[in-house]
Design a protein around this nucleic acid. Sequence first.
DNA 1: CGGTCGCTTGATAATCGTCAATTGATGTGG
DNA 2: CCACATCAATTGACGATTATCAAGCGACCG
Lengths: 255, 255
Amino acid sequence: MKRHAIPSQFRSHHPHPCDGNLPSDLNAVLQQRVTELAEATLELSKGETLAHSGMPFKHLYLVVSGGFKSVQIGEDGQSQIVSFHFPRELMGLSGFAQHAYTTDLIALAPSLVCEFPVAAVKSVLGADRTLLDHFLTYISESLARAERDQFMLGSLSATQKIACFLLRLQDNLRHAGADPECFDLLMTREEIGSYLGLTMETISRLFSQLQMAGVARVDKRQVRILRGDLLQVWRDEGVEFATRKRKKIPALKLA
Amino acid sequence: MKRHAIPSQFRSHHPHPCDGNLPSDLNAVLQQRVTELAEATLELSKGETLAHSGMPFKHLYLVVSGGFKSVQIGEDGQSQIVSFHFPRELMGLSGFAQHAYTTDLIALAPSLVCEFPVAAVKSVLGADRTLLDHFLTYISESLARAERDQFMLGSLSATQKIACFLLRLQDNLRHAGADPECFDLLMTREEIGSYLGLTMETISRLFSQLQMAGVARVDKRQVRILRGDLLQVWRDEGVEFATRKRKKIPALKLA
DNA sequence: CGGTCGCTTGATAATCGTCAATTGATGTGG
DNA sequence: CCACATCAATTGACGATTATCAAGCGACCG
């Protein structure tokens, strides 16, 4: 992990490493105010850990490029990915409560982040009413996302989960101005499975099934969505999860 | 739903309906400042809806007595409970983002809440640095809780889920100064199932199993925890989910 | 008193996890 | 440069976990 300090006299000048990389609602007029806070940029290589669960909560991080997984550790050592973070997203927001990070933040690929000292963030939030408003919006949005994830984990079938997952990736890409039909996954099947509450094998089978159904082409990490409309059907209504040939004889009732 | 307005000249005087009912970190010196904001108290009977998903986000609510479920609605009308809210908890925090509630908030029992206008809350957060700090702590705590829920939904077995659920209820009761060994559930089996990503029948069987194992006594909604230590074992290591008599013959390997 | 609701329990089956074997890609050291 | 190991992914066979369907029961309510 390479650290590049940003001299303070440089912080209000352009160009700045965070330019154009703020969450949707923190951009525009607020951008300059926020970039003034950036203390450093960090360069991580794939697999490096930016924050460790339980360690003192000193910084918030803005993803500039690359991607991260946020890993929750259970009482007995199991772990699950609870979210992925892509460019223009803030990481570490759940750390305010216990003054400690609640998850590990690990780079999925070579990545760049901006580092914001918590104290400075709090300070500027107290001083700038508009920024506070946008910050509340952002953290609230994170909460809403977690609620949707809970719904996904608890109420959807395997086929609905991947459809949901892929559709959200597409939304992300659209917001980033990238091609939502054709993209690269930054994560392994196992990581997707961890996030969706499924196993690696199930994810693999689901990708095969998506391909057989003509919904998408998947080659290694390269994904091309062919039928977004069908994907929505998969998400909203679900389809049969194909393992072996079905034997379905609905059994007749007795009088 | 009965509304009781609080005259503003009364807001800074004692006694106040919200006294002693603020989230752990919003109490002490902050209590007065916060109670000054309370616009009204609302009295709900069981089953009444305090906030509707998608409706304009105007108020935050503090639970004074009773309890609530927060219900997430899926694309196609399914629904899942994503959290329960008990006295001293704030509800509605996920509404800042879209200026709309993201879930339905429904009373599990006759309940009392304090109503805080969002605009007034924002305003006082901008003015009072300490309060802002505690508010961030609280919303961050909500986010951390949602992450733990995701872990529970995605990584635990049915037996681990109930153990986890009951242990959290106990923690809640301890914080409220109530008896953590003996309490009443405010929710039905179906509601617990919805929250844990299981069915009503599974919850019922799990309660029966808890009783047979001597871990707890469950009679309708009355629960008495007999062996908190075993409950932790259930949560951390899990136990076999008993349906019919097990047939387990681990099969030997071939050379 | 009939009806609905919450709950329990049993029988059966679908979904998805586990285990195993295989392949291709990547990387490493002799 | 070629074994050699490692890792991500695919696919099959099998079975456990948990959902679904069904029946019954007590409690409460109009």
